[in-house]
């Protein structure tokens, strides 16, 4: 019976070489904690200044008439309804196109594709595509959707272009979500005699759904906030009617912000800031939706 009494001095002396380093190690820990805190502080500070500035300029202009009105050369009469509807249409098209394409590609790459050099190359390239400047997708969209397929400068063409833009992000997020499902789930499904399709449909996809949906919604938020590609594929800046998604011109919120911000008159800077507040609100709604969807879908997952 040689169990040491906790109050008694240890049987073997603690190696003294750890003692001098203790203070330094604790100090290192504190410094790292401080650095992390400073990092988040810088972010919060920038965000706070941005928000205060935008709200200070934009809030006086933000009212129901602004949300339901159409653009005008007189800032007091100007509204953003066409841009809001345009952004909404683009967002819906992006969701409709990128969900099936992105999820199917991710399921293929994680569940079906063999782990060979070609598929690894494919996956690396998809990751690289996520880093391509968005203006490049605008050039592609202009050549492919607007001119070659003859869709013209419509919000449908914009939705397709934005789908290409966010598809890499959706695929990568979906792959990560699918990989996070433990292999025991797959093996369990096979053990019960499931085919690969049944395994994916009944076990893997539902388990990965929260992560997939979160990735999709966040990517959609990016598509709605993006202006550069749409400038190339022909979004107008002065649209006083609600856009028809299949023909004719449209505009979106970021384009409207950009145009108003570049006007010399101070009042246009004000309505530009008001439109930014509307975009921020839209983003907040989408991010909130991502949280809710994630919480709902993951309620029944337990392993």
């Amino acid at each position: 019976m040689t169990v040491a009494n906790p109050t008694a001095p240890p049987a073997t002396p603690v190696a003294p070489r750890f003692e001098p380093a203790l203070m330094r190690r604790k100090l290192t820990g504190t410094i790292f904690y401080g650095a992390c805190l400073a990092a988040i502080g810088v972010l919060l500070l920038a965000l706070t200044f941005l928000l205060i500035d935008v709200f200070r300029r934009g809030l006086p202009w933000l009212d129901l008439g602004f949300l339901s009105g159409v653009p005008s050369r007189r800032p007091a009469n100007a509204g953003i309804l066409p841009a809001l509807v345009g952004s909404f249409q683009v967002g819906i098209f992006v969701a409709i196109f990128s969900f099936p394409l992105g999820v199917a590609a991710a399921i293929y790459l994680t569940e079906y594709a063999k782990d060979n050099w070609f598929n690894r190359l494919l996956q690396t390239n998809i990751s690289n595509l996520a880093g391509v400047p968005s203006i490049i997708y605008g050039i592609l969209g202009l050549a492919l959707f607007v001119r070659l397929l003859g869709l013209g400068p419509t919000s449908l063409a914009a939705g397709l272009t934005m789908t290409l833009l966010i598809l890499p992000v959706v695929i990568i997020a979906s792959i990560e979500a699918l990989k996070a499902v433990p292999d025991a789930q797959r093996e369990g499904a096979y053990a019960l005699g499931a085919t690969r399709w049944q395994m994916v449909r009944g076990s893997i996809f539902p388990a990965a759904a929260p992560g997939i949906m979160t990735g999709l919604i966040l990517a959609m938020a990016r598509a709605i906030g993006e202006a550069a590609p749409l400038l190339l594929i022909g979004a107008s800046v002065f649209v006083t009617f609600l856009p028809n998604p299949l023909e004719g011109s449209y505009t979106v919120l970021p384009i409207q912000v950009l145009q108003w911000a570049s006007r010399p008159q101070a009042d246009f800077q004000g309505i530009s800031a008001a439109a930014i507040i509307v975009i921020l609100a839209l983003m907040l709604v989408l991010n909130g939706l991502a949280l809710v969807v994630r919480a709902r879908l993951s309620r029944h997952i337990q392993w």
């Binding site: 400038l231 022909g234 107008s236 800046v237 002065f238 649209v239 006083t240 004719g248 011109s249 006007r263």
Partner: peptide, 26 residues
């Protein structure tokens, strides 16, 4: 030229509600 065109397009559309004048600035 855009601000002038925008003003003209705005007034023209007020007077002719059947005509749409989407304007861009490339």
């Amino acid at each position: 030229v855009y601000p002038i065109t925008e003003a003209v397009a705005e007034d023209f559309q007020l007077a002719n509600s059947g005509v749409r004048v989407p304007t861009s600035l490339s």
